[in-house]
């Protein structure tokens, strides 16, 4: 799987560019590069559903981020304790990386998943009893439908939060929206 590792290195380089470049619009575009690389990686890892979803979500996310930053591009200065801040952050990230590296040793080898739970779905007869062809859809909406219900609840909460943030201004000046729009 050499192409998989190359794609991951490409994503990491795009992410580093995204967080280190000065211009905000360039940073958002670099995040888009990283996301589309992730989409190709999903396709390599045999997950076509996820590739489609990631592609579409990435486009929507990119449009929101670009419209948020395109007018408000401000140069920001790094003043004060630059060295101390960077040093403390790097130490924390290094400790985190070390602990994560130790934890990775107990995982199964790459390419040999355990599939203790999925074996139930495979042998249950998704094709014979439920007659669903797409296993991901069947797991999401039939076997583990509580996941989808919780996800719908969380989406509802997020949308209501966005609506509350949007409406505060509109209520204060109700006539302004029609005249401006």
């Amino acid at each position: 799987m050499i192409e998989l590792n190359l794609l991951l290195i490409f994503i990491i380089i795009a992410a580093i560019v995204a967080i280190e470049v000065k211009d905000l619009l360039s940073a958002v575009v670099a995040v888009g590069v990283s996301g589309f690389g992730l989409c190709i990686t999903f396709l390599t890892l045999k997950a076509p559903d996820l590739a489609i979803t990631q592609l579409v979500v990435e486009i929507l996310c990119l449009i929101i981020l670009i419209r948020a930053t395109i007018r408000l591009d401000l140069p920001f200065s790094t003043s004060g304790r630059w060295f101390v801040n960077t040093f403390i952050t790097l130490v924390f990230v290094a400790v985190f990386f070390y602990c994560g590296y130790k934890a990775l040793n107990s995982l199964p080898q790459f390419g040999n998943p355990i599939m203790k739970v999925s074996q139930f779905y495979l042998t249950e007869g998704t094709l014979e009893k439920i007659h669903a062809t797409n296993l991901v859809s069947a797991i999401n909406l039939n076997f583990r439908a509580y996941d989808a219900l919780g996800e719908a609840t969380a989406l509802f909460a997020a949308a209501i939060g966005v609506m509350a943030l949007m409406r505060r201004k509109g209520k204060k000046t109700p006539g302004e929206k029609e005249s401006d729009g």
Partner: peptide, 8 residues
């Protein structure tokens, strides 16, 4: 066609 082909 979410239950037959990729997508949903």
């Amino acid at each position: 066609h979410g239950h037959i082909s990729p997508g949903g």
